[in-house]
Computed example of a mutant assay.
Amino acid sequence: MENMENQSGQAQPEKNAVAEDATVVAESALEVQLSEAQAKIAEMQDAFLRAKAEAENIRRRAQEDIARAHKFAIEGFAEALVPVKDNLEMALKIETPSIESLKEGVEMTLKQLSSAFERNRLLEISPEVGEKLDPMKHQAISTVPAEQEANTVVTVLQKGYTIADRLLRPALVVVAQGK
């Protein structure tokens, strides 16, 4: 029996040594995994901070672009109107203009102004007589009895304007009264 205890006693230390070796190997594998995970976390934190900084830079640049766009939005329109003003000033400098030359100058200036409006998407709203009243583009000032369908344009008192498909000013109109 003592012999068995010896054998058991010897077997026990061998098992403990193997178990300790396995524990050491497992611990070192866990330490490697932990250090790899920590390195991955550090890499992801760095990537996150870089992405956050980049997003902030993009936001800031976009705000600057919007501010510049607001500040200079009218620049193209102003450039188109400057020659119109120049022509009007030249017309006023003429000492003794004839009615024909004044009329010709005004017509040329009006063409130039209309061209500037078109280039900058400022379009006229000038409804035809008999056209149906469109409350999105026309403003009825009064109604009159007329020989045409009710709620149709009888007279245009003032043209309206849109800018880039947005109503700037409605056309002022007189409409036919219902019979």
Rank of each mutant, 00 (worst) to 15 (best):
M1R: 06
M4T: 05
E5M: 12
S8P: 00
G9C: 04
P13S: 12
N16R: 13
N16D: 09
D21K: 12
A22V: 08
T23C: 01
V24C: 01
V24P: 00
A26R: 05
A26D: 03
L30I: 11
L30N: 13
L34M: 07
E36Y: 09
A37I: 10
A39Q: 08
I41K: 02
I41S: 02
A42P: 00
E43F: 09
M44H: 05
M44R: 09
D46G: 02
A47Q: 14
F48S: 02
L49V: 04
A51I: 01
A53V: 09
E54I: 01
E54P: 09
E54K: 15
R59K: 14
R60F: 13
A62R: 05
Q63Y: 13
E64V: 04
D65P: 00
R68H: 02
R68T: 05
F72K: 01
I74F: 06
E75A: 11
A78M: 09
P83Q: 08
L88S: 00
A91M: 15
E95H: 15
I99R: 06
E100N: 10
S101V: 07
K103H: 05
E104P: 01
E107S: 14
L110M: 02
Q112C: 04
S114M: 08
S114C: 03
S114W: 00
S114F: 09
A116N: 04
R121N: 08
L122R: 01
L122M: 14
L122K: 01
L122Q: 03
S126N: 14
P127Y: 06
E128S: 11
K132G: 03
D134V: 10
P135I: 15
K137Q: 15
H138G: 01
H138D: 15
Q139I: 09
Q139T: 14
T143K: 15
T143A: 11
V144K: 12
V144D: 07
P145R: 02
Q148C: 03
E149R: 14
E149L: 13
N151W: 15
T152K: 03
T152C: 08
V153C: 07
V153M: 10
L157R: 04
G160V: 07
Y161I: 09
T162L: 07
R166G: 00
R166I: 06
L167W: 06
R169E: 14
A171R: 03
A171Q: 10
A171D: 07
A171G: 11
L172Y: 11
V174H: 04
V175E: 05
V175W: 02
